[in-house]
Simulated assay, not measured.
Amino acid sequence: MNRVNQSEILITGYAKLPEETTAYKLYDVVGIALRINKENAEIIDADITLATSVAKQFFRDAVIGKNLNKIDEIINIFERQYLGTAKKSIITALKICQLRYKNYLKNIESKDE
């Protein structure tokens, strides 16, 4: 039984972590996965490779329900409220996810032509 909704896609993004972070000792890079409604760019679910459950939950709370096309709104949350050393890496990985989503849409459009 396929439990994945046909209107959803999974997008990942990665960025190098600062060496002074605990997450760097574990993963070297921050990886994020976003489950997206491909029709409206809503983030349905999310995960991140940070070291603590509190940081992971903050990330989820900051992105779930947001629109990937409005990346500046998401980035502003991290700019204002995330004071961890992985901030720049998280923002970079989010931007990579948005770029992959835009490329996905371009590929879909080119197939329709």
Rank of each mutant, 00 (worst) to 15 (best):
N40T: 14
Q81K: 12
I32L: 07
I90N: 02
T49L: 01
A93N: 02
Y27R: 11
E79S: 10
L99Y: 06
E79M: 08
I36K: 12
D61F: 05
K106I: 12
D45P: 13
A41Y: 15
Y27H: 12
R80P: 07
D45T: 11
E79P: 04
I36T: 10
A62N: 03
F58Q: 07
C97Q: 03
K56P: 05
I108E: 12
N40I: 15
N67A: 07
E8F: 15
E20M: 09
E39F: 15
E39N: 14
S110A: 14
K25T: 13
I9S: 05
I71K: 00
T49G: 10
T49F: 05
K106D: 13
G13P: 02
N67W: 08
D45E: 15
G65Q: 11
D112A: 13
Q57H: 05
Y24V: 09
T49V: 02
M1C: 09
R35H: 05
G31N: 09
S89I: 02
D28Y: 13
S89M: 01
D28C: 07
K38W: 14
T92Q: 05
F78K: 00
Q81A: 07
F58E: 07
I90Q: 00
F59N: 07
D72G: 03
V63H: 04
G65Y: 11
N5S: 12
N37Y: 14
T12N: 05
N2T: 12
V30F: 06
F59Q: 08
I44P: 09
I96N: 01
Y101L: 06
K102H: 06
Y14F: 01
G84V: 02
N107K: 13
I96F: 05
